[in-house]
């Protein structure tokens, strides 16, 4: 079994895992970081989005071994102590979540989109969230939250 090492939310971790282990399985099953979710098996829903070396990726479509040596940030690693990330704050403030299942991936994608588009229009936000499916909110408040967070990031 290959040994996979990476930095997750600032901590170095190392595990021996089967080669077929996906990054999302590594996070959820080996590190018990269950904030990253799995909502589909065709790489479309985005519930599993995390940051690998600063870029948002679908952790269900990447082997853990591919992330060997990388720096990974999950939803659990966003807040600094008790201080929430502005995107987390904005999601709460603007009621951008209901059941909460898509929320971690949505927040991780939204942070990446604001990094690449510091002052995004509604159209840009909607287009950039193409890889994340939410069944509850109709996206209306997610768009509002991302816009508001962009102003505070």
């Amino acid at each position: 079994m290959p040994t996979v090492s990476m930095t997750v939310n600032g901590k170095t971790v190392s595990r021996d895992v089967e080669a077929r282990t996906l990054l999302v399985q590594f996070l959820r099953e080996h590190l018990n970081l269950t904030g990253t979710h799995v909502g589909c098996d065709t790489s479309q829903c985005g519930a599993c989005v995390v940051h690998v070396d600063g870029r948002s990726v679908k952790s269900c479509t990447m082997l853990a071994a591919q992330a060997n040596g990388a720096s990974v940030t999950t939803i659990e690693g966003l807040a600094q102590g008790d201080k929430l990330h502005p995107m987390q704050e904005a999601f709460r403030e603007h009621h951008a979540l209901q059941c909460g299942f898509c929320t971690p991936g949505m927040i991780m994608s939204a942070i990446d989109l604001v990094k690449r588009n510091p002052n995004p229009s509604e159209e840009t936000i909607r287009h950039e969230l193409e890889g994340n499916i939410c069944r509850c909110t109709g996206y209306h408040n997610i768009v509002k939250a991302v816009k508001a967070a962009a102003a505070n990031m």
Binding site: R55, V57, K58, D112
Partner: peptide, 9 residues
């Protein structure tokens, strides 16, 4: 192509 996350990999 795809979506931003797909484009990142």
């Amino acid at each position: 192509i795809g979506d931003p996350q797909v484009r990142n990999l």
